[in-house]
Amino acid sequence: MAAHEILAATQAVVTLDVALPGTVWPWLVTVNMWAKSIGTGVIFMLFLLLRTHPESGKQLRFLTAATAFVFINIFLLFTLADLHQPFRMWHIFFHPHWSSAITWGSFMASAFLGLLTLLVFLSYTKKDETYDKILLWTTILAIPVTLYTAALLSQCTARELWQMPAESAQMILAATLSGSAAMILLGGNKLSYEAKKSMGVILGLSALMAFIIYMSEYVFGPMKAEEIAATIEYIKGDGPYAVMFWIGQWMTYILPMLLIVLSRASKSESILKLAAILALVGLFIVKHVWLMIPQLLPMS
């Protein structure tokens, strides 16, 4: 039974209660997810480029490591800023509770940052052979680093919308989408047109798959659970996040897909860059909407 049908049946109105707590995880957490997607995504793309377009990939070792380093630091900084007791962050390392995805994420992200720092140093000192060996382990570690947020969201038992299978796929796709978009923008003259086309294909396919998952949740999610139905209402009709949701879907997925097809037909790098910019900006909006809407539900 849909939420509005339940309300019609009960004709019940809360006449006295405390105020709803409002947003608990604000935009700082959106920045966390967005920056982490870029930081891990560019590593995935460099690993791929070194195997498929080595001449282009070799020239991007330093730039990629530096970009990942910056974005993972942004991710960690905003995670810290979101804590109400940021100076107690060290408790995670000295009193770890291993059932929590936050604990695992903190350790893995710290190790990932360590590897990125090493990559920056190795690329700066031109030790390419060691760089490529470390890059393999960095790429492997980037997978759980980008996935841990899906586990964290799933541990939020109160927020039915965030299910591990869908969120895991969305986190990986966010990384491949933002990583390929960032590479298209970063590559400049160092990235061959063929390599840029490959990045465009990854961007387009990531957008397509992520869009399919969001639309599936939008249409079929409400059929699964009462709470999901009530949550999806916030992005339907006159819902408070309906406009932002669709702006995000168009900017991140639909327009980039169309622009990539257009750029291939017209062999235009400018159109490809426009698709990349839209995807990067739109991803922030998409993530923000999905973070906010379950927080609007009354829990008690």
Partner: peptide
């Protein structure tokens, strides 16, 4: 540490 994970997790 005030991460508010518990606030987000509690279904009640």
């Amino acid at each position: 540490i005030g991460c508010a994970g518990c606030v987000m997790a509690c279904p009640y």
